[in-house]
Design a protein around this nucleic acid. Sequence first.
DNA 1: AAGTCGGGGCC
DNA 2: GGCCCAGACTT
Length: 245
Amino acid sequence: MKRIKYQAAIARSPLMVFREEIILWYRKQGRDLPWRATQDPYHIVVSEILLHQTTVRSVIPVYAAFLERFPTVQDCAEGPLEDIKAITDPLGYKIRGEWLYRIARYVMEHCQGRFPDTLDALMALPGVGRYTAGAVLSFAFGQDAPILDTNVNRLLGRYFGLNYKDKSAEVQHRLWSLAEAVIPPGAGSEFNQALMDMGAMVCTARKPSCLLCPISHNCATGLEAEKNEWGTSAAEERVTYRNRE
DNA sequence: AAGTCGGGGCC
DNA sequence: GGCCCAGACTT
């Protein structure tokens, strides 16, 4: 009998394409950020707390200054709080210095200086919600935990045709489910970073770069949509792209 | 579900 | 002036 040929005609699923295109884009175009050079849970927590509603560019120098003054969770737990706040307060949301201080003391006193690696335990820490807990599980502990920050929320909402500005429990629950479902098994850390960079650099809040987007061909909102959410047609997008640089 | 915290950047 | 930024917490 003839040997059965398992050839390339087996189509890749849309989800598979989604994952592969995003990973390929990220490895070529992704940002090189300081907190991506480590898996230390303490460093990850510091970065994530500082990044709450705060631009990456603003956080970078503060992150460096913080870890120089408080290199370990033990150093942070020893405070004093005034020294912590002197570094973190200029970013705004001045409660974050106290959160970091309380987190460090809790981890030293109740966790033998090791950060917890479960969703519930992380979310019990002050200032750590679902997003930050997922970030720690993913980036520090390598788990396939979903994250849904403003970038991922917007990207998934547009791509799957959900109104991501709708903060109702139903819509947000669907987006969290999608954030979990799209993760390539075993690659949660890199893929989550990739999703955030896609949201921050391509699928931006204003004037998204649909022409440079590797997944626009399947996007429910972007380039292929006749009229998209930012009110310009696909043709207008192309003109906009041509006229810049 | 809505309000609050906040400095900084970009229209 | 309005919107947005790797959200979380309180009411």
